[in-house]
Amino acid sequence: MQPNDLERIARQIRLRDLQAVYDAGAGHIGGEMSAIDILTALYFQVLRIWPEQPKHPDRDRFILSKGHVALALYVTLAKRGFLPEDEISTFLKPHSRLNGHPNCNKVPGVETNTGPLGHGLPVAVGIAKAAKLTGAGYHTYVLTGDGEMQEGSNWEAISSAAQFGLDNLTLIIDHNRFQQGAALKDTNDLAPFASKLQAFGWDVTEIDGNAMSEIIPALQHRTTRPHCIVAHTNKGHGISFMQDTVDWHHKVPNAEQYKIALAELSEVL
């Protein structure tokens, strides 16, 4: 698939995500928009997966550790054939299996239940370690938020991944520079991430996390150490008035804003 095709798919996912947030009256649209290019690259180019066999033992694993952007994952999984596309309209509705955070026992393609932050990376370390013990050839990817890296459990996992020599593990940090209530730098500023990960023995690549031409090679990069991609992204990417503002962590657009956002995302489809 060409970068142009992937960009087109990413815009379609953004559009569906926006519609679902508007319809549900809830969601985490800012962090969804920042991560959708990475999700698209993973599910439509990089991951070795079989939607009809979501538990295939040889599948590559992807864990959405920033589970609050579940909707972006649901839309991506639906577009990739893991669940019916029309099911997205049930998002957050009573008894829908698509709640605000992904459930691995209900939604095909979800590997572990996330929601509380700092959980995905330790689980990913275990999955990658299992491959080392069994000789399985799958690769494990995990996506965290940048604010999420404030959770200490991540650093326990980072340290053990290096100790275990997990060259089959890729951590992607969605570095959109904002957390729920404020900018990362005004809260507990862990940036720059690269030097910290390197100090723990990881290989680090820094990319524009909203540029497909940089995302794909970074995800495919293999090294002898665990690999961290610091993906510099824009919160609310693709919708002009949402970009780079803390307000759009989980705000829902009003009718007028929705119309503008729809138009912006639609004009480039």
Binding site: P57, L121, G126, I127, A128, K129, A130, L133, A136, A157
Partner: peptide
């Protein structure tokens, strides 16, 4: 915390 998460991951990997 890592120990329990790693345990869950090892199970995901078939162990």
């Amino acid at each position: 915390q890592n120990m329990v998460g790693v345990g869950a991951g090892l199970a995901n990997g078939g162990l």
